[in-house]
Simulated assay, not measured.
Amino acid sequence: MSIKKGMGYGLGFLAVYLVFVIAMAPAKKLVALIELPQDVVLHGVDGTVWSGEAQSMSTSNYEIKDVDWSLSPLSLLTMSPSADVNFGRSPRIGPTGNLTIRNDHPYVGLHDADIKIEAGRIVNLVTLPVDMTASGLVSVDLQTFITGKEICTEVAGDITWQQASVNAFDEEVALGDFKGKLSCENNSLAITLDPDNDLGLELSVYISQRGRIAAQGYLKPGPKFPESARPLLTMGFLGKKDNQGRYRIRI
């Protein structure tokens, strides 16, 4: 056997051995070596890097239960590692869904995500001009979400709020359904609402790198505007109508 061939076999054996060691290593030890985003913590990690789970993943103000993942061996051959991830117990207590995490050089990308969460969970995270609660199911269909130095580099997806309703000033108001598009604008994640809705609401919401949420748009009550919500227009927190009959919204 030539020296060159012997070195080739030796390097091949070493590569297989390293893959085996990584594959069988406890996931919690490998997670400890990974620099997670700021304020993100995994709790109760178990399993291996190929197939593992965490009891929860938390940030400074939120928690996702029952996270598990499965790494694709085939993706390693294409030098673009990817893992299928499932999370959550019920939309009523937190986000649930599934997605694929992939190394989209030089960034990390989320693909083919299907996420659901109760609307009230989202409202609790936002500072609003009036106290209100919300109900209905929010669904996110995310084809691509690539993040880098900014919160998003590339985004393509849709968001739907089904059977939406809010309760403000002890008044329960059914709002119908809302649909929107996801995109990147000025280094922020943007949600642009489809103006074809019962409220006559035209709104864009922006989420920045630090989690700050801003929104701007207009509310123009039309024939489908809920009658139970009309008294809210006279309370003044939306200001006065402009010459086109619109109330300006800015958060």
Rank of each mutant, 00 (worst) to 15 (best):
T48V: 06
L128Q: 07
A134M: 08
I115T: 11
V130C: 01
S70G: 02
I115Q: 12
Y107E: 14
E63R: 15
D68S: 14
I115M: 10
H43I: 10
I101W: 03
V85S: 08
D112I: 00
Y62I: 01
I34N: 00
S70F: 06
P73Y: 07
P26V: 09
T59Q: 07
R92H: 09
L30P: 01
E118S: 10
S70T: 13
P81E: 02
Y62D: 11
P73A: 02
N61V: 07
V108W: 14
L74E: 03
T100H: 08
N98Q: 11
Y17Q: 05
I101N: 02
L71R: 00
Q38T: 13
Y62A: 11
I117C: 06
E53S: 05
H43W: 05
A119R: 13
Y107G: 11
I34T: 02
K29G: 08
I122S: 08
D112K: 13
V45F: 04
M57H: 03
D66G: 03
V19G: 08
N86L: 05
A27I: 06
L125W: 05
N86A: 12
I101C: 09
N61A: 11
T127V: 12
V16C: 11
Q55G: 14
D131I: 10
P91T: 05
A134T: 01
T78N: 06
H43P: 01
N86S: 13
L71A: 01
S70W: 05
P26H: 10
L110Q: 02
I117Q: 08
P81Q: 03
Q38G: 01
G109Q: 13
S90I: 03
A83Q: 00
V19P: 00
A83K: 03
F87K: 12
A134W: 01
T78K: 09
G97S: 13
G94F: 06
G47R: 04
P106C: 08
D66E: 13
P106T: 08
I34P: 01
D39S: 14
S75M: 01
V126G: 10
L18M: 11
I101A: 14
F87M: 12
R89W: 04
P26L: 07
L30H: 02
M57I: 14
G44H: 06
P73Q: 02
S56C: 07
I115A: 03
V108S: 12
L125R: 14
P91Y: 11
P73R: 00
R102S: 15
A119M: 14
S90E: 15
L128S: 09
V108F: 12
A54F: 07
A23I: 06
V31M: 09
V41E: 13
L76E: 00
N98C: 04
A32C: 04
A83R: 04
P26T: 09
N86R: 12
S72R: 01
P37W: 08
K28V: 03
N61F: 06
S56H: 09
L33T: 14
V126F: 07
V40G: 02
